[in-house]
Design a binder for these strands. Structure first.
Lengths: 160, 160
DNA sequence: TAATTTCCGAGTAATTTAGTCAACTATAGG
DNA sequence: CCTATAGTTGACTAAATTACTCGGAAATTA
């Protein structure tokens, strides 16, 4: 589980797709223009996204890309693992080198943290991101007359 | 909020420190040997960790580094932001370029996701990581005779 | 057939990672 | 005071990754 600008580009592009879901194929040229991402870079990213079966492509005029699944079924973790090939994550590859307990201890600790982050990002779907955005927009309007309601719980329990 | 191997190194090194917390200063040479990270690279990382006031140093023989705060007060987010200088995160820097609604929409969406991940990693402390490791060790022993209890809830509600 | 748009591979500049090297400062112990 | 230890700093570098560009196919619509 890495979290780089590369994954950020992919998530942004997929969000662009999600916002136009149901309106037919979306061209990379359009995404490129709207999101300010180079067309060639998008081609590389969407090659991976297609091989990961997150999007489907239609060639020719009027073609483009569509989500291969519903927005609920596509998570940020899916997108990131599709474009960021997995890091080996450990200094002791398979299980060699892991002699003393100390080395294995921090090794396992990191593996656990990694898995936990992955589980978390698996729950963040395109659907929830779009929903959060809508909620935020109305909240902003409320804030103008209510001036900050309760500040507790930044994210409403698994909402994102 | 980035999540790279650089941050991984820093977290691993800080965990090594956390496991020896209270036993006096820990040398980088020791961390280097135990965690298989080059000494010079650790010097760079700990320079940043010290400037972020996450660790304190003691020079001279018997010296080394100690945690500047309790393990509860140091989060993974703290460590990562200390060593991974912040990404600008947006294609439209401050607020220029943000003309049409669409661009701002996905822009905000990513900013929100970013903040959410940051909030989450702020709750993952060195203390909880060490505690999780201990819990896992006893769980592994239990599994030997119980053969997988309930698989639900990978992480016990904010435990990590 | 012509225009559109996805596919595909090779190449590349800029950046980041991970590390080396050398010199310097502080300090404990003899 | 001397010396070994250990942090502190800065400059430099090889390798990898990022973020592209370019050129050309292949498929499909009109």
């Amino acid at each position: 589980m890495r979290l780089t600008t590369k994954g950020r580009f992919a998530v942004t592009a997929m969000l662009d797709l999600a916002l136009r879901h149901g309106n037919g194929p979306v061209t990379l040229a359009g995404i490129s223009e709207r999101q300010s991402i180079s067309l060639s870079y998008l081609e590389q990213l969407f090659g991976k996204l297609r091989r990961a079966e997150l999007v489907e492509s239609v060639r020719g005029p009027g073609g483009g890309y569509t989500l291969a699944k519903s927005t609920e079924a596509i998570s940020v973790a899916d997108i990131i693992t599709a474009v960021d090939e997995p890091v080996d994550a450990t200094q002791c590859g398979g299980r060699e080198n892991c002699h003393d307990n100390h080395r294995c201890m921090t090794h396992d600790l990191w593996t656990n943290l990694n898995a936990t982050i992955f589980d978390y990002l698996s729950k963040v779907t395109l659907f929830s991101l779009v929903a959060q955005q809508h909620a935020k927009e109305t909240t902003v309007m409320q804030d103008k007359r209510e001036a900050q309601p309760q500040r507790a719980r930044v994210t409403p329990t698994g909402a994102l």
